[in-house]
């Protein structure tokens, strides 16, 4: 984390975390929250050893940030996190989990439960950045109350040798969730399960999966939308292969248990078109630069290049 001093929760390896609290929010290590707050206990199966508890009680005006880092060799992390956003409250959280070196051989097995109470809103951006010899699993359960809104974006541009992710989103009446997963795999085996459960009337779910299969990579992505109430769901699953030895297995699934529900999906896996590459090369980019630009666009990265209505060269920033 470039500016760790501004991080609200920072855990390095298995050390005690550093905290910066705010008046509108309760931020505690999960173990402490488990000990001090009785209502919190029912959200944990057992006493957590690591991880954070964030309770957003009132509106906050800037994003909260969390960072859980591997910095030493052979560390095993098992953070268990709980985020609760109170009724009618709006919040934004940026969560980073990373390794600061390439060859730490660390293991990070994280679980997070995210509870959005009635009419609350959460924008959660989750960044992973790992060394090539790490093994990572990340699991999240989202519980959305009535009218709650969730925007969840997960991005991993430096993948470990093994990555497993799992997201379950449960939606109550009139709630909505948008999940966007962006993964750029290199020398990795990645297994992703992203499920949304439309449990309430007029609930809306969107699962948007973007995968880039680079050198020596295999990605399996299960994206499932399950409607048991009259909601609307869409699964959008796109893969891009940039290496001959990469495989992407996209498995979008729609399970409809309610005749008033509407579920749709689209999926594609392909290579970067030569026509696009040659077009960008005709603008002076090398083939690798053109691939990077297309991949970055595909994964949803954009540089802020319009300044006061002028488009300026990005070179000084690169």
């Amino acid at each position: 984390m470039k500016n760790a001093r501004n991080v609200n929760f920072l855990q390095v390896d298995n050390r005690s975390p550093q905290l910066i609290t705010k008046p509108e929010v309760v931020i505690l290590p999960s173990a402490e929250a488990f000990a001090e707050l009785e209502w919190v206990r029912r959200h944990f199966r057992r006493r957590p050893q690591e991880g954070y508890f964030i309770w957003v009680k009132e509106q906050i005006d800037c994003p909260l940030t969390t960072c859980i880092t591997l910095s030493s060799p052979n560390v095993f992390q098992k953070p268990i996190n709980l985020i609760v956003v109170e009724k009618d409250v709006e919040a934004e959280i940026h969560g980073v989990c990373n390794a600061i070196k390439e060859n730490l051989c660390g293991v990070h097995s994280g679980y997070s439960k995210v509870i959005l109470k009635e009419n609350s809103k959460l924008k959660l951006r989750h960044f992973h950045n790992w060394g090539r010899r790490d093994e990572i699993s990340s699991s999240l359960d989202f519980i959305l109350g009535k009218e709650a809104k969730l925007s969840y974006a997960y991005k991993c541009l430096k993948t470990p040798m093994k990555l497993k992710t799992k997201s379950n989103i449960h939606l109550e009446e009139n709630s909505s969730a948008s999940l966007t997963v962006s993964v750029l795999a290199k020398n990795s085996k990645i297994d992703m399960h992203d499920f949304a459960f439309l449990d309430g009337e007029r609930s809306t779910g969107i699962l948007r999966i973007r995968m880039v299969g680079g050198t020596n990579s295999k990605i399996v992505a299960h994206s499932r939308m399950i409607a048991s109430a009259a909601g609307t769901g869409h699964v959008d699953c796109m893969g891009l292969l940039t290496a001959d030895d990469s495989i992407i297995n996209a498995v979008p699934e729609l399970i409809n248990k309610n005749k008033k529900a509407s579920l749709t999906h689209e999926a594609s896996v392909g290579r970067i078109s030569e026509e696009n590459l040659n077009y960008l090369r005709s603008r002076g980019l090398t083939e690798n630069e053109a691939i990077d630009l297309i991949v970055a666009g595909f994964l949803g990265e954009e540089d802020p290049l319009i300044v006061k209505g002028r488009v300026i060269s990005s070179e000084p920033y690169m």
Partner: peptide, 27 residues
């Protein structure tokens, strides 16, 4: 190009920023 291809995911401003050797007054 007579028929320049569609490049999904890459915005015009992003490409202009990457390739431009000088400031382009888009207005």
């Amino acid at each position: 190009f007579q028929h320049p291809p569609a490049v999904k995911g890459v915005t015009l401003s992003n490409l202009l920023g990457k390739i431009s050797k000088r400031t382009v007054k888009t207005e």
